[in-house]
């Protein structure tokens, strides 16, 4: 019976492993692999990096990309203080109302607001971007296989096209984008932002930081999840041990 169990276990693992590769199918190129601080069983988001990433998002990405599922208040997770969040939210204007005379009016953002979309709707976004639609980035890190490595690779993947590669007009060559033709021009330039903590704003650094920020944006509860998982699994191991002992005792009566 043990043999049976083991062979079934192996079979299950083989099929699970094949699933992983099934989903990875379609990736033409191997992505750059970064040793993220948020990876692994105990990984947590690198706060300083995520805060810099938030700055990169706001000063660079936000011109075209929304982050419509992320509320300013949740930035507290990344170590932003209440005052910083209030100030940051107030930089944006939101339409509210109607007021007593029935008119809509603009008001500064509040911590409970979410990052505003840069365009009113998809059509407006396409019109402003030569027909291409800049995606909302709230879930982008989960919407791509191997999301964090993909984002980092993509942002640092703007290289010269091979000589025999014909680019369609208005497109840019990217080593990691499917088909290598991407409508988004290289978004990052050296020293494009000035980090308050003095970190040098290299393309590599900014790509790294904004990836950490967007990974957090997609999965803000990751740290609670891993912490709870550790406790639950340790508890279950003890429980399983006790149940096994009880089972042995109960069955020992049987002859």
């Amino acid at each position: 019976m043990l043999k049976l169990l083991m062979s079934a276990g192996v079979a299950a693992f083989v099929s699970l492993a094949s699933l992983g590769s099934a989903q990875a199918a379609g990736e033409a190129v191997e992505l750059k692999s970064v040793a993220w601080e948020h990876g692994g069983l105990f990984g947590a988001y690198d706060r300083a990096s995520a805060q810099r990433g938030a700055q990169v998002y706001r000063e660079v990405c936000a011109a075209c990309h929304g982050l419509s599922l992320v509320a300013f208040r949740t930035l507290a997770d990344l170590g932003f203080t209440e005052d910083e969040i209030k100030a940051l939210a107030a930089e944006y204007d939101f339409v509210d109302g109607p007021d007593d005379s029935g008119e809509m009016f603009d008001r500064p953002g509040k911590p409970s607001d979410k990052f505003p979309a840069p365009h009113a709707n998809e059509k407006a976004a396409r019109a402003a971007n030569g027909g291409a639609y800049p995606l909302d980035l709230s879930l982008i890190a989960k919407a791509r296989p191997n999301g964090d490595n993909y984002l980092y690779s993509l942002l640092t993947g703007y290289v010269d096209a091979p000589a025999d590669f014909t680019l369609a007009p208005g497109m840019n060559y990217n080593a990691y984008f499917a088909g290598h033709q991407i409508a988004m021009p290289p978004p990052l330039m050296e020293d494009q932002v000035e980090f308050a903590d003095g970190t040098e704003a290299s393309i590599d650094q900014m790509a790294h930081d904004v990836t950490v920020f967007l990974t957090w944006a997609a999965e803000p509860k990751m740290e609670q999840r891993k912490q709870m998982g550790l406790k639950v699994i340790l508890f279950l191991l003890i429980l399983a041990g006790l149940f096994y002992a009880v089972k042995r005792k109960v069955w020992s009566d049987l002859h």
């Binding site: 999840r225 891993k226 709870m228 998982g229 550790l230 639950v232 699994i233 279950l236 191991l237 429980l239 399983a240 149940f243 096994y244 009880v246 089972k247 109960v250 069955w251």
Partner: peptide, 19 residues
């Protein structure tokens, strides 16, 4: 009791995916 032990083992497997 045998099923309870099986359940505890299964929950560890479930938790590995879940968390």
């Amino acid at each position: 009791v045998k099923d309870l032990f099986g359940l505890a083992i299964f929950l560890i497997f479930f938790s590995a995916f879940l968390f």
